[in-house]
Nucleic acid binder design. Sequence first.
DNA 1: GTCTATATCGCGATAGAC
DNA 2: GTCTATCGCGATATAGAC
Lengths: 199, 199
Amino acid sequence: MARWAPDAAGRLQTAALELYAERGFEQTTVADIAARAGVTARTYFRHFIDKREVLFSGQSELQAFLAEWIETQVGPDDPMTRVIAGLEAAAAHFPDKTELSVKRSAIIASNAELRERELQKLASLAAVIAEALGRSGIDPAAARIVGEVGMMVFKLGYERWIGGDHTSFAATIRSTFDDLRTAMRGEGQAAARQSAGFA
Amino acid sequence: MARWAPDAAGRLQTAALELYAERGFEQTTVADIAARAGVTARTYFRHFIDKREVLFSGQSELQAFLAEWIETQVGPDDPMTRVIAGLEAAAAHFPDKTELSVKRSAIIASNAELRERELQKLASLAAVIAEALGRSGIDPAAARIVGEVGMMVFKLGYERWIGGDHTSFAATIRSTFDDLRTAMRGEGQAAARQSAGFA
DNA sequence: GTCTATATCGCGATAGAC
DNA sequence: GTCTATCGCGATATAGAC
């Protein structure tokens, strides 16, 4: 028999999610989490850099998938189209929406520090998209913008998906992007100004 | 004579900026900052919730200005146009780019915790824009999207302004938005797919 | 795994402003 | 007198060093 129970990281994640849900993030100490997972606080910090990070694994898989997808596409489509298609593909591979994922979102929403970490992860997603586009030969400034837009669509789409109805994540991404395009298009005054020679 | 030197908060901000620039954020303790400002660490925490917050005042003025501006506009322009115009107006009221503001940006860029806080402030800006639009009768979902876009334009524009050439902040905001519109419009494949019935 | 720095916050006291 | 800014002390937990 092994000296330690396997998958300490997994047990820590489960313990943390449970405790954060039960008592709230601030009322939970890292020592509590470690105890429930059957390890010491020191071991916790070997697996996760800080108290927040337990809730944000998975992010790196998404980033890797997207970067790979963006760089291996060969079509003549423009960067924005390519990134949104990549997000839809990634969304199709997402695990189903479970009670736990909803709970996780609620925990994050309830605490400022956790919301900050989530934003940092999203910023990192934007950077990954921009870098992948850059490696595909897209101009860096344009890549930066498209990375930000892609990230925003993912953020709003995820939010809608978790909070909402029963549509698939991929479909939610698509409709979010459509709504964004509509908002950007502008009507009346805006259209007039634009056709008057804006860019 | 007053019992305490006035403007403790201001002295704390100055001291913090100096020390963060001299030794770096992590190498500076709150006690150091307080000492240089002539108060105790306990007093520091009465003015700023945590070690990072000293670098992010000013944000609330921007938010108040924008909310006010958005709600008092009367033109028939669509929300996106209104928000960008508001950002340009706010940018026109910004203090000049000084050595200190550049230094402040460099400090923030050099530390992950500070970048997280900056993102949180920007998220709060997006929320403020969305709420102001909501109070102006705009549909909440559309307001949310426009808030996010406005925030992004501000973020990218500020970054370009601080990092770049000699253009005014307002002009930088405008050209950033133009670039965003160009990226969103999409060419070739994207245009074809769109006219094939996407939105 | 142990040791430690320090960020953060609660509490009670103090002194001047109004 | 009440209000407000500050101090000083003490406690706890995160996070990094050794």
